[in-house]
Nucleic acid binder design. Structure first.
Lengths: 186, 186
DNA sequence: AAATATACTTACTACTAAGTAAAAAACAAA
DNA sequence: TTTGTTTTTTACTTAGTAGTAAGTATATTT
């Protein structure tokens, strides 16, 4: 695959995660990469095309991460910890997660992009609920309500706190994430 | 105060809460109100001006709500329940909350708007933490971690789940909110 | 060597955005 | 009824936006 294409995807993702979908333009990318506007259209005929590709890439990345953790026999706690670490890293890099960046703009996205985004959110929540359920049965986690509810609370907390920490500025994010994990301790 | 001005503020808020800050235009407002583009500039010289006013209005609305609840001797549970009801209503109206709409776009906002938004988030989190702490001491609530942490988890959950429910579509939001409250039961 | 595909650039169209200056209309008070 | 103020429209500018058509140099295939 083309290096330029890869760079466009990477830069596009970063722009979405810092400025948001409706605030970034092809010019932001072309200027940064030192190419012309039309060169981006060569790889991604339309903006919706680009964003859909970015979401698809992220879905794949997530699937690979989960597969990798399972094959390396990560236990439930280690897997959840690895997932939370993605958010700690995002915060350090002053970026939001892709879901937290695109979800607020979902109404303004193309239908095919909406579909991919839904697929991604569904996938994450299903994985989280499954992990929590399995961990609870094995005594790794302890929590009162349903695994689905708990998955939603944990994911929501991670997504929104990343947005809010950009507003508040200070916020000890790493510590906050730790308290989410601690809450599950048996 | 002018009726047109009030209508612009209301419509602007709704547009931010449905499409987002960077996706709505003065034309969206002028078309809906049957006035001209320039008429909006008469009341709000710039877009940043309008958005800042919208945030300020919401801060005031929140302050009034809290004052009102205190003066009517709402207990901690009733106050939290009333706060959660705002989000259930938002979900019913297929809108995000203002914080959840503007926070992801904070980098693209004018500095004065950023300041007001921070003020709003600070205020809500302080109030929530205060309420949780007081309620815990009185035995109305029960939770393990600090009131500040719990306030952040609850607020994040409400904000992000509103965004995610717009992506997922189905989601039993009312029930989800109930589970957040149930979690605090002693 | 000729044909074709790749990876672009140049130069444009069509449109939308925010914002402005000046004129006109609407409304009040004298 | 005149005068002044507030509100709104007309008509515009400036500065973008996504997207396209046509061309070009270079590499690859036939």
């Amino acid at each position: 695959m083309s290096v330029t294409r890869e760079k466009i995807l990477e830069l596009g993702e970063n722009l979405i995660r810092t400025k948001g979908y409706n605030a970034f333009s092809y010019q932001d990318i072309s200027t940064e990469l030192g190419i012309k506007n039309a060169a981006i259209h060569y790889y991604f005929p339309s903006k919706k095309n680009l964003v859909t590709s970015i979401v698809k890439t992220n879905i794949q990345r997530f699937e690979e991460m989960v597969e990798n953790m399972e094959s390396r026999n990560f236990d439930e706690w280690q897997q959840l910890d690895a997932f939370v670490k993605i958010y700690v890293k995002s915060r350090r890099e002053k970026k939001k997660c892709l879901v937290g960046s695109l979800s607020p703009d979902v109404k303004t996205l193309d239908e095919s992009t909406q579909k991919e985004l839904k697929k991604m959110v569904d996938m994450i929540l299903r994985w989280l609920a499954f992990l929590l359920e399995r961990g609870k049965n094995k005594g790794v986690f302890a929590f009162a309500d349903s695994a689905e509810s708990k998955a939603m609370v944990i994911f929501s907390s991670l997504v929104a706190s990343l947005q809010l920490s950009a507003v508040l500025g200070n916020l000890d994010y790493k510590n906050y994430c730790q308290s989410i994990l601690d809450d599950l301790r048996p």
